[in-house]
């Protein structure tokens, strides 16, 4: 459906909603799709784009949202998750908005979605070739932890001048015998660019490597798009003798579905103060609970 048809349909339904299909005007979508193509051509490289103000707050997923709205069509089925959950604030406001501006089917089922917009998680169920995962990115510049200036980090990426971030890891290990970066752990993409994977837990980092689906990253406030095309080498930064370690959930299982090889949320009971664990991926958990 073109934008015009969309507006006509809306008017025929006597709605006074005068926005284009998928909210953005077609020129904007075209521009963003061109930037996506560039990002796919240079895996891990941050492509600048003229991010539009969206009706949700800057820092609330406006980058991911613009990507989703630029690639989505009438035949798509959308899933939106926030921290793994389909029902969390951010996911709900985004779903409500997208439904309002393009009325496409929305699902909680990972397997049924063609486009999944996510904040801080990769679903537990394996993604396929026909699916696109869109990440919301708060701070796209991984080198920001060691360098505040954009001009400088841009040069560092161009020259692959990455010793400072390696040194950051080195110093952590020397002082704490542990790396202090929790979520959003730096990865090397296609042996060229060090990239911020968005604040996904380290548990999800291995899923980036040779992913079967296209992974798109959008940072609205910082105005950057980047991508990992399918089957690209993506490796966390690690030393030969201090290897990358994911979060440790050994001996813990989901209190609802009993899953053990998943990312778990720690839940503290109001009264007893005891800790229990639940799947972070709520739709996966529900699926397992169904008879």
């Amino acid at each position: 459906m073109t934008g015009k048809e969309w507006i006509m349909n809306q008017q025929n339904n006597k709605q006074t909603f005068l926005y284009n299909f998928a909210y953005l005007d077609e020129n904007t979508k075209k521009e963003i799709r061109r930037k996506i193509l560039k990002a796919v051509a240079i895996p891990g490289y941050q492509v600048p784009f003229a991010s539009r103000e969206m009706p949700i707050g800057r820092g609330w997923g406006t980058g991911g949202l613009q990507l989703t709205l630029s690639i989505i069509g009438c035949a798509d089925t959308l899933k939106v998750i926030d921290q793994g959950s389909d029902d969390s604030v951010n996911a709900i406001s985004i779903k409500k908005f997208i439904q309002k501006v393009c009325s496409i089917p929305i699902t909680n089922d990972t397997k049924k979605a063609t486009v999944i917009q996510t904040r801080h998680r990769i679903p537990e169920e394996k993604l396929e070739k026909n699916q696109i995962l869109v990440f919301q990115v708060p701070v796209p510049e991984i080198l920001r932890i060691i360098e505040p200036s954009d001009q400088v980090t841009k040069r560092m990426h161009a020259e692959a001048d990455y010793s400072a971030i390696w040194l950051y890891l080195y110093e952590d290990i020397i002082h704490f015998n542990e790396i202090s970066i929790g979520a959003g752990y730096p990865v090397m993409v296609n042996q060229r660019y060090i990239m911020d994977p968005s604040p996904i837990p380290r548990f999800d980092i291995p899923k980036l490597n040779h992913s079967r689906s296209l992974l798109l990253f959008g940072a609205g406030r910082e105005k950057r798009i980047y991508a990992i095309p399918p089957f690209t080498d993506v490796h966390p930064l690690e030393f030969e003798d201090f290897t990358f370690r994911t979060e440790d959930f050994s001996g813990k299982t989901c209190s609802k579905c009993n899953a053990s090889d998943v990312y778990l949320d720690e839940i503290i009971d109001d009264e007893s103060g005891t800790r229990s664990y639940q799947c972070s991926d709520t739709s996966y958990c529900e699926k397992r609970c169904q008879p």
Partner: peptide, 19 residues
């Protein structure tokens, strides 16, 4: 950064990856 870290930086630059 520590004195050792400064020395290490040069090796990290040359892509030494064994702590």
């Amino acid at each position: 950064i520590s004195a050792g870290g400064n020395i290490a930086e040069k090796m990290l630059m040359a892509e030494w990856r064994n702590l």
